[in-house]
């Protein structure tokens, strides 16, 4: 990370395949990863489905991009947060997710957001 790194947060709040936002969002995240900034991701609401294991998009005719989240570690993007209630409301636990995450409460996510230089919603 650069010495003068800025905090940039990506908020994933849409499900993975209903629109292109998460997919193009992830493309932006990977590019940002090359800039040695202090990057974090937050998965909120239906956005938590982005990290659901065992997704198969073959019958949708859509490229499955979800496995790409696993490459984030290689970009030194390790701050991946998931909203506790969003997981719980959807009957999911950390074991259902394809990457290691830190589960946070809404107030905790709120304080993380307050620390950011920039926040991008996808």
């Amino acid at each position: 990370m650069a010495e003068d790194a800025k905090k940039i947060m990506f908020v994933m709040q849409k499900p993975p395949h209903g629109s292109i936002y998460p997919y193009e969002g992830l493309e932006f995240i990977l590019i940002s990863g090359a800039y040695e900034q202090d990057i974090s991701l937050v998965f909120l609401g239906d956005g938590v489905y982005n990290l659901k294991k065992d997704q198969d998009t073959s019958e949708l005719g859509i490229k499955g991009f979800v496995k790409t989240y696993r490459t984030l570690e290689g970009y030194d993007i390790e701050n991946i947060y998931v909203d506790q209630n969003s997981l719980k409301d959807r009957g999911l636990t950390q074991e259902d997710l394809i990457v290691d995450v830190k589960v946070k409460t809404a107030p905790e996510i709120n304080s993380l957001m307050n620390e950011q230089h920039a926040i991008f919603p996808f």
Partner: peptide, 12 residues
């Protein structure tokens, strides 16, 4: 490219 969006963000 998207790198320009990163630059624009860092400069803002």
């Amino acid at each position: 490219g998207l790198g320009q969006l990163v630059d624009l963000t860092l400069n803002a």
